[in-house]
Amino acid sequence: MGCVSSKRRKQEPGYEEPTVLAAETPFTVSEVEALHELFKKLSNAIIADGLIHREEFQLALFRNRNRRNLFADRIFDLFDVKRNGVIEFGEFVRSLGVFHPNAPVADKIAFAFRLYDLRQTGFIEREELKEMVLALLHESDLALSEDVVETIVDKTFGEADTQGDGKIDPEEWKEFVSKHPSLIKNMTLPYLKDITLAFPSFVVRSEVDESD
């Protein structure tokens, strides 16, 4: 059953078996199959090679392949675990797993830290925080004066950098999030729980029995 399709899928670069991915993530096998439907759509949007290129990621997020965005770039880089410039299916599923409502909170906190550690130094520095605030102001209609931005960044940094060494380390970040749990709200995508409903076309073509 489903042999032709399975062979075709195995030829896709970076394709991994749903059973393997389901075992390593909060997703069920059915959900991984549904994510494959989504992945096929995203990865063939511009270049039909079964890999998500940066432009395809931006196109999906903003309906515009040329619109660069600091956060989209950082998320793309974090999803692209192999750092080869594309997101493969396995990378896509494992990374989205962190955003699953059932994923461990510690994973969400760690992922958010890596997201905000723009220069990947192992710390979130004051300049990085300011850069992110300026980037979001640039993206939104919110207009804040330079003084206000400095005040917000100083205040936040002062609270989060409990050791006062000018940088936020993972432990300080964890403590800061525990005081402000809403900070990782964006690390959960409730939609992921309904992914099989979002891609019902998959259901009639499911190749893997959940009981396997």
Binding site: L38, L42, A60, L61, F62, R63, N69, F71, A72, I75, L96, F99, A112, Y116, L129, M132, V133, A135, L136, E139, S140, L142, L144, V148, T151, I152, V153, K155, T156, F157, E159, A160, F176, H180, S182, L183, I184, K185, N186, L189, Y191, I195, A198
Partner: peptide, 25 residues
């Protein structure tokens, strides 16, 4: 009020930081 928010709160609430669009059909 943005000024009373902490910077990470502003960032995490930003619309530009959202993967929701990935799932739009």
């Amino acid at each position: 009020k943005p000024v009373s928010m902490n910077a990470f709160e502003l960032i995490s609430r930003s619309q530009s930081f959202s993967l929701d669009n990935l799932f739009e059909k």
